[in-house]
């Protein structure tokens, strides 16, 4: 069975690496983007089932990426989980209004994050790791 593919968007290489290790250990396939521009490009090319998005990004911050994803018919179906170091109260509302499926503040609780990833993939009918 094919694994669900998750696009990780974060400009910090270490955090990207950590998330990749965590997700791969949980039987997900991952692809990575370092900025807003390549995030959109990769979303087109790789057809991920889910995107984990940081907000503070070069070349179009997370809100720009969210907006682009929402306005693009081909991409608007991909659920986005925001994972950011930014202040929760102000950013969370904004992200959810902009169409994000969930919001996590770094450092996120791994079990909780994995749970939400699983639940979100289930709603879009993606193939889940057994």
């Amino acid at each position: 069975m094919e694994k669900a593919k998750i696009l990780i968007v974060d400009d910090d290489p270490d955090l990207r690496q950590a998330l990749k290790l965590r997700l791969r250990a949980n039987q997900y396939d991952t692809v990575h983007a370092v900025d807003g521009y390549s995030a959109i490009a990769l979303a087109y090319k790789e057809h991920p089932q889910l995107i984990i998005l940081d907000l503070g990004l070069p070349a179009g911050d997370g809100f720009v990426v969210l907006d682009r994803l929402q306005k693009d018919d081909k991409l608007s179906g991909i659920p986005v989980i925001v994972l950011t170091a930014r202040d929760a109260p102000s950013s969370e509302q904004r992200c959810l209004h902009a169409g994000a499926a969930a919001f996590f503040q770094k450092p996120a609780d791994n079990a909780e994050l994995l749970g939400v990833i699983r639940a979100t993939l289930k709603t879009t009918g993606s193939v889940l790791p057994s």
Binding site: D14, A18, L19, A25, A85, D87, K106, P107, N110
Partner: peptide, 27 residues
């Protein structure tokens, strides 16, 4: 204060993430 705390969070997340990767036996 808010800038500093925000900047501290990124390396902190990194420490937390890699330590928990070790702790959970993923490596």
């Amino acid at each position: 204060l808010s800038h500093v705390s925000h900047e501290l969070r990124t390396p902190l997340t990194c420490i937390h993430q890699f330590a928990s990767i070790l702790f959970d036996g993923l490596a």
